[in-house]
């Protein structure tokens, strides 16, 4: 059975849990004591992922790190419909937004670790970067809504939506509300309505 090395408060692990649930894939988890135990920096974990980051996903002998890469693997191996990672003109756009979710949007993760777990770092700088990323996404989603679209790319949800949702929804942990982002507010509701949606601490399951 596929195995997710998981930390319940990690937005990146949540990306993987979301897609696993939406695709109905049975999996087991192994809790990693990321905080306060810093288990992800211990030799046993570094042997799995030398970067010392969560999540890690094991599937039929394959050991994968990086939430975005794991989403690609799941879509490619388990989604017969091809909806979540379309192999047509949408492919490049999905990849572009995946990079954004694993890149610019992760400023929210950094700010959240400082605000919530007292990690060292410059909170104000990361919050400013996070706001820039959220505005960029809100502008994009507003353009999509004007064209009648609900999703980041194309007419169906893709892994671009799944990769982006967790830290957008968790931005309040970083001290950033959604008042400035009406299109994000609308899109979030669409993601929450998807079959198989699950919440996480900080992302209530109700909608």
């Amino acid at each position: 059975m596929p195995k997710l090395y998981d930390y319940v408060l990690s937005g990146s692990c949540y990306k993987v849990r979301l897609l696993l649930n939406m695709l109905g894939i049975a999996y087991e988890t192994q809790a990693v004591d990321f905080f306060p135990g810093r288990e992800h920096k211990r030799p046993e974990f570094l042997a799995l992922n030398p970067l010392g980051q969560l999540p890690v996903f094991e599937d039929a002998g394959l050991v994968l790190r990086d939430a975005q890469a794991i989403l690609c693997h799941l879509a490619s191996s388990y989604d017969a419909s091809g909806q979540w990672l379309p192999r047509d003109v949408r492919f490049g756009s999905v990849m572009m937004w995946l990079s954004f979710a694993g890149g610019e949007l992760m400023a929210i993760s950094g700010a959240r670790m400082i605000a919530m777990l007292n990690y060292p770092g410059d909170l104000a700088t990361l919050q400013a970067k996070a706001r820039t990323a959220l505005r960029l996404l809100d502008d994009h989603l507003a353009d999509r809504a004007q064209a009648g679209g609900l999703w980041i790319v194309g007419a169906t949800p893709t892994i671009a939506d799944i990769a982006s949702f967790p830290y957008v929804a968790l931005s309040h942990d970083a001290g950033i509300g959604h008042e400035d982002y009406p299109a994000i507010n609308l899109w979030q509701r669409q993601v929450r309505k998807l079959p198989g949606f699950v919440g996480m601490p900080g992302v209530p399951g109700y909608f």
């Binding site: 809504a145 509300g177 959604h178 008042e179 009406p182 299109a183 507010n185 609308l186 509701r189």
Partner: peptide
Amino acid sequence: IALSRDVPVGITRAVIV
């Protein structure tokens, strides 16, 4: 305080006025 389009049925929206 909002565009009607951005507040469809079933939604909540926070606004600071």
